[in-house]
């Protein structure tokens, strides 16, 4: 009985991994093309979304792995604190870089353009 469950679980897991890999491959192909078509190759927003688009994949896959593996348990006091800091940190960097670009593009340059 156990062996059957294991076997079924493994098959399910393999399918899950294969599906995730396929989705990531499609995103890797599509993301740069969509960004270049939308903003143009020279826009700072292309670099911004390229970095945070691919970066978010790595970041949230990492979050999923440490939660699923039990390395980070939200039941432990210290882990919960660091986990919140981890997520906030990602969005802090995301917001900070976004605002930085806005400030760069909107405050006038004093010299000759």
């Amino acid at each position: 009985m156990d062996a059957k469950v294991d076997s079924a679980g493994k098959v399910g897991m393999h399918r899950y991994v294969m599906l995730t890999a396929a989705v990531i491959l499609v995103v890797v192909y599509a993301l740069p093309r969509v960004l270049v078509a939308t903003f143009g190759v020279d826009s700072p927003w292309t670099s911004y979304f390229y970095k945070y688009g691919f970066g978010a994949i790595f970041f949230f896959v990492g979050v999923f792995i440490v939660l699923k593996g039990g390395a980070c348990s939200l039941k432990r006091g210290h882990d919960r604190f660091w986990f919140r800091f981890l997520i906030l940190g990602f969005f802090w960097y995301l917001a900070m870089h976004g605002l930085w670009i806005v400030a760069s593009l909107t405050i006038p340059f004093l010299g000759e353009v």
Binding site: K51, G55, F59, V63, I65, V66, L86, G89
Partner: peptide
């Protein structure tokens, strides 16, 4: 650009 790997490092 290191924040993407922080979860892997601090919890792994």
């Amino acid at each position: 650009n290191n924040w993407f790997l922080v979860a892997y490092f601090v919890f792994g």
